[in-house]
Amino acid sequence: MSPCDHPEQATRRALARRVDPRVAVVCVLAFVTVQAATPIEEWPRFVAYAGLLLIAVIASRVSLVWLLKRLALALPFVIAVAMSTLLVRPSADSAVRLPGTDLMVSGPLLILLASVAAKATLSIVALSLPVALWDFPVLVRALQALRIPRLFVMLIAFMWRYVYVLGDEARRMVQARDARSPRGRLVRRVLVVGSMAGSLFVRGYERAERVGQAMVARGYDGRLRLLVPLRRFRAADAAAVLVVAGALCAMRLA
């Protein structure tokens, strides 16, 4: 399992890497906030957002496949809203006909669906760009430099490491189960998965305790120290800020 496997080497030579990671993080957060605050009824703006994002994607040289994998994260939410759009019986005054079918669905829910799909897609693509461009410690350092609360930074840093450890553990448990009950009935398998989740939780908890011990054993006092030099602000950074800020303002005002 590899929820965050590293993208190809191409991003190492990307234009976007000339920008300081701190600046990139700020730009991405600004982008995500602005588009999330835009009502979906003003849909031409979203075309513009997508255009801006496309430029960033090209400048980052990430591959389509890698992006699509990140996008799969949004799928459950979009499906949830889509289901409710189809299942909820629309009231008479809000019903609209689904184009090309006889299905009547609720207008407001349809709009909600479009909104969730558009905003989730834009946010996830934008947020995955820094992850594709820089190594993890560099981003952690950038978050620190931006005065993001320490607890939050630590949370992200440890999630990154232990998502693999717990993922491996879960895989080993599944393998052990399959080795002993190759083709059990579905109900049984579901029950086994339930108890596995429980024991995974306990193992995760015990692991956290031991990791905590290992940290204090090496003098940890609650402050995460990393050795990643911070660069000086450069022309590329100013350019990135100006382009993103300018574009976002123009799109909001237009």
């Binding site: 410690p137 990154w160 450890v165 692991r207 990791v211 290992a214």
Partner: peptide, 8 residues
């Protein structure tokens, strides 16, 4: 897995 907890 207990000893190594940092990203790199």
């Amino acid at each position: 897995d207990d000893q190594l907890f940092m990203p790199t």
